[in-house]
Structure formats: C-alpha cells, structure tokens
Design a protein around this nucleic acid. Structure first.
Length: 284
DNA sequence: CACCATGTTCCTTG
DNA sequence: CCAAGGAACATGGT
C-alpha cells in the first residue's frame, strides 16, 4: 500500500478514529513485525494507554499514547506498512483477516494491522526515524537542498530518490512519476543534475505527492464491517460495486503504452533491481 | 514453473 | 569509514 501519500491519507483517516481510545489488550500474531520488541514489552507499554495523536514521518505512522499511570512517560508506537501492510478499525465481532499481524483491543472495535508479506512493522523502536532526510512537503525541502544532497553521486537519479536520507517518503512509484513530470531521465547520474533541474525535480516531487494525497482524500474509506476493507490501497483500484476512481499515475506501470505527452511508447528498465518507467523522448 | 510486486535492512565488495 | 550492488525477508498474483 504505501508511499508517502497513501500513508498520509491513512493517518488522516485514523487520527480521529483513534484519538481518545484506550488500549485494553494487545495480540501479536506475528512476532517478526514487532521487532525488536517482545509481546510482553508491547503489552506492558500499551495496555491501559490512551491514543493522543496520530501523525506521519516519511512512510512511518506515529501513534502517540498517554499511559494509564500519569507518572510514566508518553508512549510512541511506530508503524510501517512495508509493501502490503494495512491498518484499520474493525468491529469486535468482525472476523480477522488471514494475515493479521497485530491486534489492539479498543473495546467495541479492534485496531488491526494486517500484512500479507509481513515486511512492515509496529513497535516501540523509533531508531529508523533518525536518519531520514527532509519531508518533501515541508519547507525543509527544495531544489537547492536536493542539489546538495545529490552532489558527487554517480548513482542514477531514480535510485537516489529512493534513498530516504535524500528525501523522505518517495517510493518506487512516485520516483518514476516525479522524474516524468520533471522531464528528467531516470538514468542520469544524480550528481550531474544542474541546479535548475533539481529545482524542477523538487517541485515535481512535491506536486506528484500532493496530487496523490488530494486524490486519496476523495476516496471514501469504509472499513467498518460489510467485508469491504480494501478501501485504501493504490488509488485507481475498484471499490465496492463497479465504482472506479480515476487512475492518476502517468508513467508507472505503463510500459509499451503511449506517453501521455508525445505518444512515444513508455519504456520499462530495471535499476537497483526495481522497475523504472519513463518516456525516452520526454525524459533526457 | 516463471516472473513480478508499493520497502527496508543487512552483507559484501571495492 | 564510505559508496554501491545485491540478497534477504514472505506471500501472492498473473
């Protein structure tokens, strides 16, 4: 599910639902996703605690809770959806999905973290936040900083954009999208982009992420029973009975199809073992 | 059976 | 120490 926009939309969805809720119990079905914590550690910190706020840093979800004992310090749960993670509330009577990783008992509802591949995480460990680069939608990020971060790198720009220390939250899909929008070839050596190109690329990164957030915000997320819990996945998937949301990706996964600007067939290449899509004519 | 998949982290190599 | 490349993680879809 996740790159920055999907996580942002999910956070906005969850925040009002979780705020004020008290955790009555913790069930860990897959130990791996709470590493390096143990089941006991999670329960000790969370049971009796109350959700105060939900926020986002890069692709991480941050859950801040106030413990039952006023004397103990605040608790921060850190979540990450990996490739296939989802988080949502279900009524207690609803059946848990096959790949449920962690369940927080909230009384009438359960907070469910499910993850088919179990690459994601939900733990008290915040160490991976330390090395993150600037938030692309904040004032900390602009073309000049991007230019500086890319200096001297001989790596392909597409690969550098996936490095979370360069800019935090861009993933494989929006890296291709941003480069297409900026008219920059994904194969260019990162350190050879001019400042002007970096300014345009930084602006494109912001634009594709913001558009995706805006688009995702229009999708009704209905997780409450009814078996429809696929509300938030990549946008453009079908939802409910035959209703489709406008696909907005312009190059990703469009290999062989005409470029939306010039009709040249979109090309797929592999960089750092991951697919990149681009228009060989518009992006040089 | 083959290959592909939204991400991060660890290990190796130079 | 650093940069870069590749494998690993785990499951499913086509």
């Amino acid at each position: 599910m996740p790159e920055l926009p999907e996580v942002e939309v999910l956070v906005r969805h969850l925040a009002p639902l979780l705020k004020g809720r008290v955790v009555h119990g913790v069930t860990v079905r897959r130990e791996r996703v709470i590493r390096p914590n143990t089941d006991e550690e999670l329960s000790r910190s969370l049971v009796g605690a109350r959700f105060q706020a939900v926020s986002r840093r890069a692709k991480f979800l941050l859950f801040d809770l106030q413990p039952a004992a006023k004397s103990s310090s605040p608790v921060r749960l850190v979540g990450h959806l990996g490739m296939t993670g989802r988080m949502y509330l279900l009524p207690v009577r609803a059946e848990l999905p096959k790949h449920t990783a962690v369940v927080l008992d909230l009384g009438k509802h359960r907070f469910v973290y499910e993850d088919v591949r179990y690459f994601g995480r939900l733990s008290l460990d915040d160490s991976s936040l330390a090395d993150l680069g600037p938030e692309p939608l904040s004032d900390d990020f602009d073309g000049e900083r991007l230019h500086r971060a890319l200096a001297k790198s001989t790596q392909a720009i597409k690969v550098r954009l996936l490095d979370q220390t360069v800019v935090a939250g861009v993933g494989n899909i929006y890296a291709s999208e941003a480069l297409f929008r900026a008219g920059v070839s994904p194969r260019r050596a990162a350190g050879r982009l001019t400042k002007v190109e970096c300014v345009r690329l930084a602006e494109s990164i912001r634009a594709v992420l913001q558009e995706a957030i805006d688009c995702g915000s229009t999708i009704p997320l209905d997780f409450s029973g009814g078996g429809v819990r696929d509300g938030l996945f990549y946008y453009g998937l079908k939802e409910g009975e035959g209703v489709y949301y406008e696909e907005h990706l312009r190059v990703y996964d469009r290999a062989g199809k005409p470029c939306l600007n010039c009709q040249t067939p979109v090309r797929r290449i592999v960089q750092a073992a991951r697919s990149t899509f681009y228009c060989p004519r518009c992006q040089r």
